[in-house]
């Protein structure tokens, strides 16, 4: 009887042992989040700029172009898909002013940005057809506001060969449109 009792006791303990031998010693939880593709561009500070041509004060002299305006900064944020191509920024104007060229150049990026910032094309003459001013933008951000991103230099220049097209006018507004796109 004692032997039977002892064997029963042993089996009971072994049974408990089996349970504990297979007790769970690991477990897990998941972490997840999604980062979307992003394409944002804007000009800082907001508002218009003025380029006032200077009339000659001596007969025989041409109209004088004003100093280039460097008050605007181009900011952008870009996130690209895995394996996706780079992006570029174009600029175009709403209309041309007869007898004048409006020129634009973007400086190299500076400020508090990071990532794969774009490369400036250099100076272009703006037209109603969009032209690339910055290319090779990857996942990047320029920083927000003035002194961040690409400083723009915008100028208006009389076209000597089209001088006959120049007419007196006031407050002629030209809108410059900037667009960021995937290649």
């Amino acid at each position: 009887m004692k032997i039977v009792f002892n064997i029963t006791l042993l089996l009971s303990i072994l049974s408990i042992s089996d349970v504990t031998l297979f007790a769970q010693t690991t477990g897990s939880k998941n972490v997840s989040f999604a980062l979307p593709e992003i394409s944002f561009v804007d000009i800082e500070p907001s508002g218009s700029l003025s380029l006032s041509l200077i009339a000659p004060n001596e007969a025989g002299n041409p109209i004088v172009a004003p100093a280039a305006n460097k008050s605007k900064w181009l900011n952008y944020t870009s996130a690209i898909q895995t394996g996706g191509g780079t992006k570029h920024i174009t600029a175009s104007i709403s209309s041309k002013i007869p007898g004048f060229d409006i020129k634009l150049s973007a400086a190299a990026a500076s400020g508090s940005g990071g990532g794969t910032l774009g490369t400036s094309t250099g100076q272009i003459t703006l037209s109603t057809t969009a032209q690339t001013i910055i290319s090779g933008i990857g996942g990047a951000y320029t920083g927000d506001g003035t002194n961040n991103g690409h400083q723009l230099t915008i100028s208006i220049v009389p076209i000597v060969s089209s001088y006959s097209l120049i007419k007196a006018q006031s407050n002629t507004q030209v809108q410059i449109t900037y667009t960021i796109s995937a290649n």
């Binding site: 998941n30 980062l35 996130a79 394996g83 794969t116 996942g139 990047a140």
Partner: peptide
């Protein structure tokens, strides 16, 4: 960061 490729990230 936006420097990371746009994707859904996850880990266990």
């Amino acid at each position: 960061s936006v420097v990371l490729p746009a994707a859904t990230y996850g880990c266990k």
